[in-house]
Every structure is written in structure tokens, then in C-alpha cells.
Design a protein around this nucleic acid. Structure first.
Lengths: 220, 220
DNA sequence: ACCTGAACACCGTTCAAGT
DNA sequence: ACCTGAACACCGTTCAAGT
């Protein structure tokens, strides 16, 4: 099962002239438009090229295959999510553990529910082929920042910040995805908004000691 | 976006003779074999039919389209997972909340990690088309049982058992999926095994009162 | 009652030919 | 240096013809 390497997913060549930069951009936005308007199942190279106003051949000059195009879309989507989380993290640095937890969850939920159609489309797109490499890389980048954020907490010391950061991402990301992917009813999102902060807060509290060094009694 | 209704996903007709029952079964197992041996991307009707020793036409007599075939596979997979969880639930009924939580998490992790290749293949398959209907139905069935299980806890009373059951499924399911889908490194699974029980236990403890009616002080 | 497989529409991808 | 679009291999699905 020879999977394309990440390198193979990058655009085939960089545009050297102004018009080709326009072409690349047109293809990219056309792909997003088709995705949102017609769904993953109807996202075909022909349709994208038509919408972008170029021929299929032109598309293949910049994206070696369809996957590269999808990869670019997902990369943009994930990138903006990570950026928003990094920004939130820097604003939360040094606050109390509960505030940090609540802030992260709120940011995550805001990003994902602000454009539910877009989020769902991206989940579907991501599933179409192997983006585990990208998700892993970006996930690790975020995990690293979250780890330091947890360490910065003013009132408590997370015992294993690395594991906690990893779990926070897995739990927040997974739970929200689970709900959004299966219909995303308003009632379900409401439960998520009410309960996910509790999940993360309780987890972090139970995995930390107060700053003085005295252990909190674990609720068993 | 006309999605096929669940009814349209069912086998087209029931086999009326012994040999056709054999044919249906052969197609079903052939599909699983192709999926595991060649991956989702190479799971084609032609290949499945060839492996099953029938023609494509025959396949279409029992499965109205490829999706119906994939649906059958996923249904079997999810069904066995739910069954295992229901069994675990009945064994845990009436125990302490922490035991219930740990038992559920352990069962879930065991099922999912016991056959990682199969789990990953199913995630990929599930993503190929819309199974939200099925996932929702089975999820609700499980949620209902978990709700009663939480209520049965001997030492504590979960304040909102319905929401807690929903979240438990979202968190367990989502977190494990997140990790398995992106490579499932041994180190990551180890973190999951160590931390996921803490996540669920801490959440349930913080969302419950002890049976006497006295409130546990929330760790804020 | 069940099975076959050529035929059809559509997809991703290529490449000789153009400007 | 960039673009075109007919051509190719392959896919899901159908249906007239067989047993």
C-alpha cells in the first residue's frame, strides 16, 4: 500500500508568473466552493477545473493529483484552527488551571461550531485519504504549546503535562468530531457546550497538585 | 444532496434458495477480505465479485449498490462493539461509579485495540459515505443502557445521567478514534490506556453527588 | 430463480499539440 | 512558460441474454 509521501502532496511547481499564481489561487478557491456547494462526493477534477475556468491539464500542472488539492484545502483549514488555538493559549498563559481549561474548550468549540458545514465537509474530505501525517504534525505542534500552557498554570501543577496535553487534544477533538459528524443536532451541541468543559476541568484537576506541593485528595 | 435512506441500503432481496444465501455470505466475506488485504482504496465491486467467485451482476442482485455492501460490513462491526459494551454494562451494574467508569473504558479500549487494523479499516470505510444514521441509532441504544448503568451506581448519583452517558460515548469514542486514525503508535496507546480512565472517572465524579445526598465539593 | 458479462456514463490522469 | 482537451485505464451500475 504505497501511500503518497507528504512531499508528493505539495504543489508540483511554484508559479513563476503572475497569471499562474492567479490560476493556482483560482483552482484552490474553486475546489472549496465545489466542496461546500456540492459535497465531497461531487468534488471532481473536471468540476473544479470548470469552476476555476481552466482545463484539467492546467490543474495537473500545479497539483500532481487530486489528493494534493484536497491536502491543500485541509492544510489551510487545520492551519487556521491551530493558529486560533495558539492565540488562545498565549492569552491564557499563567492563569489558573480551570480558566485555562475552560478557555481552551470554549475556543475549540467556537471554531468548530462557527461554521458547522465547513467543519463537516472537512471531516469528510480528511477521511477520503490519508492525512494522518499532517494531523500528527500539527497535533504535535499544538500539544507542545499546550504542554507549556499547562505548566504555566498559576494555581496548580499538572503531574504529567505532556500526557495531559495529548489527552486534551484527543478528547476535545474526538468528542466534538463525534458529535458534528453524526448530524450535529442543536441539542447535542448544547450538551457538548455544557459538559465538555467539565470533562476537561475535572481531568486536569485530578491530574494535578496545588502549587504549594500539597496533594489534592483524588476523588475515587 | 440526496443521500440514500437507510432503507435503500438494505440488501435488495432476501435469498430464497440455499445457494443464494451462500452467495450473499460469500460476497460479504469477500468484501471484508479485500478491505483488510488491499485497503479501502482498492475495495471495488469488480474485485469483490471476483474474490467471491461471482459476477458483478450477481452482486447487484443482493446489494443495490456498493454502499449497501459497505453498510453491511460496518453494521456488523458496530453491532459487535455495541454487544460487547452491553455485556460489560450488565456486568458492571450496581457497582461503584469509579468501577463502572473504569470497566467501560477498559472494555472500549480492549475492543478497539485488539484488532487495530480492523478498526482503522472500519474508520476509513465509515468515512467513505454517510453512516451517521447508523452511528446515531446504535449510539442512542448504547447511551440508553449506559444511562441506566450510571443510575445504578451504588455510591454516587450522577446529576444528569443522560448527558453523562452521551458525553462518555463521545469522549471515549472520539479520543480512541483520534489516536487510532493517526498512526496508533504504541506510546500513544499507552497514554490513552493510562489517562482515559482518569478523564472519565474525574468527569463522572465531578458530575455526581454521593448517595446520602451530600454534595461533593467541586474542584474549581 | 438466479447468474453472466458486455456496455454505458463518469472518474482521475496523461501528453502531444498549441499559444 | 503556460494552457488545452482528446485519449486511456478504471470505476460503479445496468440489462439483455442465458441456465
Amino acid at each position: 500500500m504505497a501511500r503518497p509521501t507528504p512531499a508528493a502532496l505539495k504543489p508540483r511547481k511554484s508559479p513563476r508568473q503572475a497569471r499562474s499564481a492567479v490560476t493556482v489561487e483560482a483552482i484552490h478557491t474553486a475546489a472549496i466552493q465545489v466542496l461546500l456547494a456540492e459535497g465531497v462526493g461531487r468534488l471532481t477534477t473536471t468540476r473544479v477545473a470548470e469552476r476555476a475556468g481552466v482545463s484539467v491539464g492546467t490543474m495537473y500542472q500545479y497539483y500532481p493529483h487530486k489528493e494534493a488539492l484536497m491536502f491543500a484545502i485541509i492544510q489551510g483549514h487545520i492551519g487556521s484552527i491551530i493558529d486560533a488555538m495558539l492565540e488562545a493559549a498565549s492569552a491564557l498563559s499563567g492563569q489558573a488551571l480551570a480558566q485555562i481549561s475552560d478557555g481552551l474548550v470554549a475556543t475549540w468549540l467556537d471554531i468548530k461550531t462557527e461554521d458547522i458545514a465547513g467543519s463537516r465537509a472537512t471531516y469528510g474530505l480528511a477521511a477520503e485519504f490519508d492525512i494522518s501525517e499532517l494531523v500528527r504534525r500539527e497535533g504535535e505542534r499544538l500539544a507542545c504549546v499546550l504542554e507549556n500552557l499547562l505548566i504555566s498554570a498559576s494555581d496548580a501543577q499538572v503531574v504529567n503535562p505532556q500526557a495531559a496535553a495529548f489527552m486534551l487534544i484527543a478528547v476535545m477533538g474526538g468528542a466534538v468530531r463525534n458529535v458534528l459528524e453524526q448530524g450535529a443536532l442543536d441539542a447535542e451541541i448544547a450538551i457538548l457546550r455544557a459538559e465538555l468543559p467539565l470533562v476537561c476541568r475535572a481531568y486536569l484537576a485530578s491530574s494535578s497538585r496545588i502549587r504549594s506541593g500539597l496533594a489534592i485528595v483524588r476523588q475515587a
